[in-house]
Amino acid sequence: MEVQLGFGAVPKPQYVFVSKEADHCWYMLAEDERRIPIYERALTGVITGIEVNKKVETKFGPAEKNDLYILADKPYIIRSGSESYFSQSLLLSLDVLTSEQLRNPLTIAVSPGDSNVVFCNIYDPVTYRSVGVSWDGHNEIDWQALGQKVSLKINKIQNLNQEPIQISANTTASEIHAVLIAQTDTYLAQLNWTPEQGREYLQQKYGKRSRLQLTDREILDFIDYLKLQLTQSSPTHTNS
């Protein structure tokens, strides 16, 4: 991942939306809200977080969405309706994956079904094997409880049991910086911090308004602070 100097797009995570169309199943939005079709069926990257049953405002009114955070060539957020077949099949797949599998790159694929239905399939990009899930008794599943279970598992991996970043001789400074920024994206989302809260903290602590202005040392310090907040807000944490 190279940093392009000069004018360009705002460096922020790219939202990806799920919708069954004639020749594609997901899309992005341009600045003018125009849909940009994504014809590829799969996105491969490392899952960095998930938010379930998130209340968002849409042009059709308030709705509950699930947001899956993935770090690939850049950070992506796959957004789908909490009650959609895509979200449900995604949760079923994530539930059966082990912690070790969730630490490695995975391939998230869309699979069109009948009518307007889109399913989610997860593959191991090394072995090409899909994650087998069962829909038996899916009408009796408590999807909200399953979503919370999956969220706790993924967020625990990313925050409490996260292994040190592996740096190779070929890793560039810009790539390291991008990974650190992506980590803060995950932690801020899990803390439900608003952009205003983040900017206020950065201004008070570092005298800067953006994470992109921070040095690597400052970003690491910021990550340690966010991880501490997550630990203190954990259900298992008690104040002395």
Rank of each mutant, 00 (worst) to 15 (best):
K156D: 15
S115L: 11
I122A: 01
Y123T: 04
W135S: 12
E140P: 00
T107Q: 14
N104W: 03
Q148G: 09
D142L: 09
K153F: 02
I122M: 01
T107I: 03
W143Y: 11
K153P: 01
S134G: 11
G137Q: 06
Q166D: 09
I108G: 01
S134A: 10
S174M: 05
N170F: 06
P164S: 09
N121C: 11
I167T: 10
A173N: 07
S151D: 06
S151H: 06
S151P: 01
L146T: 04
P125F: 04
F119Y: 15
K156P: 02
S168R: 04
K153W: 02
Y123L: 14
L152A: 15
S134W: 13
G137F: 04
D114L: 11
N170R: 13
I154L: 10
W143T: 07
L146Q: 06
K156G: 08
W143I: 07
C120F: 01
Q148A: 12
D142P: 03
K153C: 05
Y128C: 07
N139W: 10
H138V: 12
I157F: 02
Q158D: 08
P112Y: 03
I167N: 03
Y123E: 04
L146D: 03
S111F: 12
A145G: 08
L146V: 04
D142A: 10
G132S: 14
R129Q: 15
I122L: 09
N159F: 08
L152I: 11
G137I: 03
A173M: 09
V118H: 02
I108T: 00
Q144S: 13
T127Q: 02
V131P: 04
A145Q: 11
Y128V: 03
L152R: 15
N116H: 08
N161S: 09
N155S: 12
I122D: 00
L160H: 14
V118Q: 06
V117Q: 08
I108Y: 05
D136K: 15
G137R: 07
N155F: 02
I108K: 03
V117R: 07
S115P: 02
K149A: 07
S130E: 14
K153R: 13
Q148T: 12
T127P: 00
A169Q: 12
N159Q: 11
Y128W: 10
K149R: 14
T171V: 09
P164I: 00
N161M: 10
T171L: 11
V110A: 06
L160K: 15
I165L: 13
C120L: 02
P105G: 05
P112S: 00
S111Y: 13
S115A: 14
L146S: 02
Q166L: 10
V117P: 01
T171E: 08
K149S: 03
L106K: 15
N104T: 07
F119S: 04
D142V: 09
D142M: 10
S151G: 08
R129L: 15
D124L: 05
Q162I: 04
P125K: 04
V126N: 10
D114F: 10
L106E: 06
Y128P: 00
N104Y: 09
V126T: 14
